[in-house]
Design a binder for these strands. Structure first.
Lengths: 269, 269
DNA sequence: GGAAAACTTCCACATTTCGGAAAATCCGTA
DNA sequence: TACGGATTTTCCGAAATGTGGAAGTTTTCC
């Protein structure tokens, strides 16, 4: 017996005696990544390699805490209102979203397309904020709080490229299996990372949405490490190489503003 | 050995095999209630009647998950960025805050004072949203995401009054000890609940802030049960009985709008 | 600079959690 | 509406995970 978390080549945190806390939050991150309809118990258990009774017991406890709720009548689990109330404090305190709000707004205004801020969370890229442009085709389907395995979205690849070699390798190793679910070939991810390192930004067709193309630049802290990414999503035709060239300075300036503001904020507190 | 959660007269949830999940979230709620400087380990352990090593182990695990972080350099724990990323999805989906945003804005404009939306979370009242009025004295100290044991704030008392007899008793029993920390006498709470039931609203001096008075009305769902409260906080002089009478219809109308909108939203989905 | 308070590690122990198997329930399909 | 496979839930024996006393280490506050 005894489920042992064994990730090849990865030394997981050294804390022991907290198996079920790790499992609980793995479940919560999984649910955060799913859509609003929720996830079935078998799928959760399958994805995390947990037994059904264990998954069930944890979900029931989380439901009792209000952190997890059942979509509609029953049977499908998703994050609940308590998650919102626990998170709203940190969210409002969190510098990056507060500082990026204006920048995203400006970019959405200037470009007319949808602008996203992604941040890394464990092995995922989370969409931390979003501004829809006024161009008729909008990215309404991608909600704030949604997640992708880091590397699937252009924002994720850009962050991977600036995360440090060791961390990048770890994340890629741990995400390798998950990429398949997003029909995202590993070599496309690797190519994206290399491109980003070469040019400082990345443009690629969307994997999740046919006919869309996305472009991302890193938001970097003082040490040059990525703490996020700003991306723009638009119909493929609207992201030809000419427009990309025109957008690049805009996005870069935005990312720089966020990074600098963050630094100044840090200094102040 | 073996810590047993024993609350007199209260049958806690029947889920077993999840002790440390309950403990984890008890800690998280405690941290959510604290201020931005964070809480010391001993205080957390003391408040929740946990041993130091256990508290330490759980906090370390939560820190590794990024749900908890250390304020400044070290030693004081508070909620971390991951809590924000897990919560931002549910928050944006959550109907009540979306629907109340406009209402709070209107009320803040109309009154010039600070308007709060509280919602119940376990035994706490959480400030789910806030609008500062343009009157020079503002309630900047009370942040969104902050918590009070339900009954301490006027919003909490108003919610208690409309929570159903059984639930109210439970919450009062479980909060009895905590009231002392807010120098909030139990009979003042009880009186507040009775007043609310008699008049449908509550006015009382602030317990947390000298020279402030607050007024609250319940936000009720179709069945009449409280799902939140809208409250206004102002210098005592600005909440005399004449102005209270003038404000009452405004607040009630606001609460009604939120309640109705919520109902319609439920119907639609 | 010293003492008290707080944090962290260690370890033997048993409570809490685990998961296989089976029963109950749900849901898609006809 | 009734059937059958899929999914959820309960049960329970087993042991791994998590527990807390005691002791060592670091931090904080005089």
């Amino acid at each position: 017996m005894g489920y042992q978390e064994t990730i090849p080549g990865v030394v997981r945190g050294e804390v022991t005696g907290t198996q079920c806390i790790r499992r609980s939050f793995a479940i919560l991150r999984l649910l955060a990544g799913g859509d609003h309809d929720g996830e079935k118990l078998v799928d959760i258990a399958g994805a995390l390699k947990l037994s059904h009774p264990t998954t069930h017991r944890i979900l029931k406890a989380l439901e009792q805490e209000g952190i997890v709720e059942r979509a509609g009548g029953s049977q499908r689990y998703r994050l609940g209102a308590e998650a919102a109330w626990l998170g709203v404090g940190p969210f409002n305190r969190c510098p990056i979203t507060r500082l990026s709000a204006i920048v995203l707004e400006d970019l959405a205004q200037a470009t007319g397309d949808s602008i996203f801020l992604s941040v890394p969370s464990h092995n995922d890229a989370v969409y931390a904020d979003r501004r829809l442009g006024n161009w008729p085709v909008q990215a309404r389907g991608v909600h704030v709080g949604a997640r992708r395995p880091m590397g699937v979205s252009v924002g994720g690849r850009v962050m991977l490229a600036h995360l440090g070699e060791a961390r990048m390798k770890t994340v890629l190793a741990e995400n390798a299996d998950r990429f398949a679910d997003w029909n995202c070939p590993m070599d496309q991810v690797l190519r994206g990372i290399e491109d980003t390192r070469a040019q400082g930004y990345l443009v690629d067709d969307s994997l999740t949405r046919q006919g869309r193309r996305a472009m991302a630049v890193p938001v970097r802290d003082v040490g040059g490490r990525a703490i996020g990414a700003i991306s723009i999503i638009a119909p493929t035709a609207r992201l030809g190489s000419d427009r990309v060239a025109r957008l690049l300075p805009l996005l870069r300036e935005g990312a720089r503003r966020v990074g600098t503001a963050l630094f100044e904020q840090r200094m102040a507190s």
